[in-house]
């Protein structure tokens, strides 16, 4: 077995005396989707922030390509190829698709003695990158991001991360606020990212969505890893029960079916 692209060993994160995460051990390989399941308050957000460089683990090791890393800022994590896409894409609703795509890395061209923002090129590259992920409806890079649907915004953010060289993609509940059709768009994009060899960490509490794309599954309960299993090892009912803390909650199950 090759070295996992990203690996956590026995990671603990405490705020004061509160242990928010304890003893988390995870690994994700290239071209693999790890679904991180957990109810609200299970520590999912803290884990994401630890992975994306916002927090430093209190103890335990965090390695990329088998090499231990410690990030001082989200920017450092990005430079190592870890891209985090938040629920609403972390985007700017009143900016155009092209400008948003290249924010902080704008392409420029010569204009007399000056360097100017190359709008046409930015728009073309952004539209192409989004279309390559299967969102062919986007064909105008001047459109404002706020005019895109939730699923399209997620796609833009993922396409952007991949274009700028992300190797690990952390998706924070990308399907939570979406309708069925939009959610299936995003799931297709997750599979596309996987096909391109990215390691994807997909955070969700929708078991159906997780089962559609996941290779590995980890269930988080009260800051600890309650279960860790591969695709096909557990049924949907078993996973749902695990997330709910071992109790059979028929009603919750129905909620999650939708």
């Amino acid at each position: 077995m090759s070295t996992p692209l990203i690996e956590l060993k026995n990671v603990t994160k405490s705020f004061g005396v509160m242990d928010v995460l304890h003893g988390i051990t995870l690994k994700v390989n290239k071209g693999e989707v790890l679904c991180l399941l957990g109810d609200n308050g299970a520590g999912k957000s803290t884990l994401i922030k630890t992975l994306s460089g916002v927090y430093k683990p209190t103890s335990g090791s965090f390695s990329i390509d088998g090499e231990r890393v410690s990030f001082a800022s989200p920017r450092e994590a990005q430079d190592k190829g870890i891209a985090t896409v938040y629920q609403f894409g972390g985007t700017f609703p009143l900016m155009s698709i092209g400008r948003c795509f290249f924010i902080g890395n704008e392409p420029t061209k010569s204009f007399g003695p000056f360097r100017v923002y190359d709008r046409k090129r930015a728009n073309q590259i952004a539209v192409k990158a989004v279309q390559d992920f299967g969102i062919t409806r986007i064909d105008d890079g001047d459109r404002l991001v706020g005019g895109m649907s939730g699923g399209e915004r997620q796609s833009l953010a993922i396409a952007r991360a991949v274009y700028f060289g992300a190797r690990v993609l952390i998706l924070d509940e990308p399907t939570a606020a979406l309708g069925v059709k939009q959610a299936s768009h995003v799931l297709r994009i997750v599979l596309e990212a996987k096909k391109r060899g990215l390691a994807v960490i997909f955070i969700t509490h929708q078991v159906t969505h997780a089962m559609a794309v996941g290779d590995q599954f980890a269930v988080l309960i009260r800051g600890g890893l309650a279960a860790n299993f591969s695709k096909g090892e557990k049924t949907r009912e078993e996973i749902t029960d695990l997330m709910a803390g071992g109790q059979t909650l028929a009603n919750l199950d129905i909620d999650l079916e939708e």
């Binding site: 985007t91 700017f92 900016m95 400008r99 924010i103 902080g104 360097r115 923002y117």
Partner: peptide, 14 residues
């Protein structure tokens, strides 16, 4: 026209 403009918009946006 400059990239700084994009940064100004971005700062105001988020």
């Amino acid at each position: 026209m400059s990239r700084y403009g994009n940064w100004i918009f971005a700062m105001g946006g988020d």
